Simulated assay, not measured.
Amino acid sequence: MQATTSESAEATVDPVATLQGQLVDMGEQLIRALPGLVIGLVILFVTWLVAKFAVRIVDKMTGRTEMRPSLRNLLETIVRLAIWIFGLMVAAIVVMPGLTPASLIAGLGIGAVAIGFAFQDIFENFLAGVLIMIREKMRIGDVIECEGIVGKVEHITLRETHVRKLSGEVTLVPNSMLFKNPVEILTDDPMRRHEVVAGVSYDTDLDHAADVIRKAVEGVEGVEVDKGIDVFAQEFNASSVDFNVRWWAGSTPRNMWESKDKVVRAIKRALDDAGIEIPFPYVTHTFKERVPLGEKPGELA
């Protein structure tokens, strides 16, 4: 008799009424949570305003100093990130009253581990970007060379560095690449040593030729004579004795090409005026038998 009663009770359950009751409960919970959601949105809006004004204040304070632009960007990013983290935590606690700061921090820790494994490359570039901004070398405006990429550093973010190549294109280089690999900073110093090879014929007085070349380079505009000019007899080449000529001039790629152009022109002009030959490559052919000269092909024996 009891089993029959139980079965009849289950049969009388109305699924529509049950669903309606659940929807009503959800609506009541949403209405109760609505003030917290509104306050949370207000907190996020205030966080956005505070972060905006805080970044402006940091920008004004650092703008009066000689701080590097990359380091200024790092400070602004840290201030903005710290304010947003704090604002999001406060908004989450207001929306979900049962959430405590301790449980929120614990959850963030577990989530950070999971996110760290999932986005390892992103966080690697992020950390590399922070370290690049902190270190003194490689500033915005420097011309660098790394892994075959040569160009001018235009912008450094927390994930990538914008390098304007000498041909005009922009290359977005991951920060981890610039941090792990050797980076050659071509414009770290305003001056840079350049070199070119100049050859003279074997019958030339090498001391006289070296003196002529040195005086020619000294007269070139833009060459730092005070830093010294080197003219070294380098090697016996196939048709000439080669001098390695080294001098100091501007460090940018444009300075290098302009300086080399002027130096090569000056050396050529000075050697011509001194009557010193810059030889062409000579080729000597050796034949097994005598080659008749001045005879017609039909007259050959």
Rank of each mutant, 00 (worst) to 15 (best):
292 P>T: 00
26 M>Y: 11
296 K>C: 02
195 E>H: 12
38 V>I: 08
97 P>V: 06
216 A>I: 02
138 M>W: 08
170 V>A: 00
66 E>V: 13
32 R>W: 12
258 E>H: 08
281 P>A: 15
60 K>R: 15
185 I>E: 03
68 R>A: 14
143 V>P: 00
81 L>D: 15
22 Q>E: 15
49 L>C: 13
122 I>Q: 12
281 P>V: 13
49 L>E: 15
2 Q>R: 10
141 G>H: 06
23 L>K: 09
26 M>P: 04
27 G>Q: 12
289 E>F: 10
172 L>K: 08
190 P>W: 02
13 V>N: 14
189 D>R: 05
233 A>I: 05
91 A>I: 02
239 S>I: 06
253 P>E: 15
234 Q>C: 02
36 G>M: 13
45 F>N: 10
238 A>L: 10
159 R>L: 10
232 F>G: 04
195 E>T: 14
230 D>E: 14
51 A>Q: 05
97 P>A: 11
7 E>N: 11
50 V>G: 02
259 S>D: 06
17 A>T: 09
148 G>D: 05
265 R>D: 15
96 M>A: 15
250 G>Y: 02
222 G>Y: 05
176 S>P: 01
280 F>W: 11
230 D>P: 00
215 K>A: 13
97 P>S: 11
50 V>C: 04
92 A>D: 13
211 D>A: 10
7 E>T: 08
271 L>S: 01
254 R>N: 12
189 D>Y: 05
65 T>H: 08
183 V>E: 03
78 I>E: 07
253 P>W: 09
231 V>M: 01
256 M>D: 10
140 I>S: 01
201 S>E: 10
265 R>S: 13
246 R>C: 04
277 E>I: 12
271 L>K: 00
76 E>R: 13
18 T>Q: 15
115 I>C: 11
68 R>Y: 11
147 E>T: 06
238 A>E: 11
117 F>T: 06
293 L>H: 11
142 D>N: 11
140 I>Y: 03
292 P>C: 03
39 I>N: 04
169 E>N: 05
46 V>Q: 08
65 T>F: 07
272 D>M: 04
220 V>F: 02
298 G>C: 10
65 T>C: 08
15 P>S: 09
86 F>R: 10
227 K>S: 09
99 L>D: 10
289 E>Q: 12
92 A>N: 09
277 E>R: 08
136 E>I: 00
161 T>L: 03
216 A>G: 01
9 A>M: 11
3 A>Q: 13
67 M>T: 13
261 D>S: 14
262 K>P: 03
278 I>T: 14
33 A>H: 05
22 Q>N: 14
69 P>L: 12
79 V>W: 02
288 K>F: 09
128 A>P: 00
36 G>H: 12
170 V>C: 00
109 G>C: 04
211 D>L: 04
115 I>N: 12
77 T>Q: 15
181 N>T: 07
55 V>D: 15
275 G>T: 07
174 P>R: 06
247 W>C: 05
126 F>C: 06
122 I>K: 12
222 G>M: 07
116 G>K: 09
118 A>E: 01
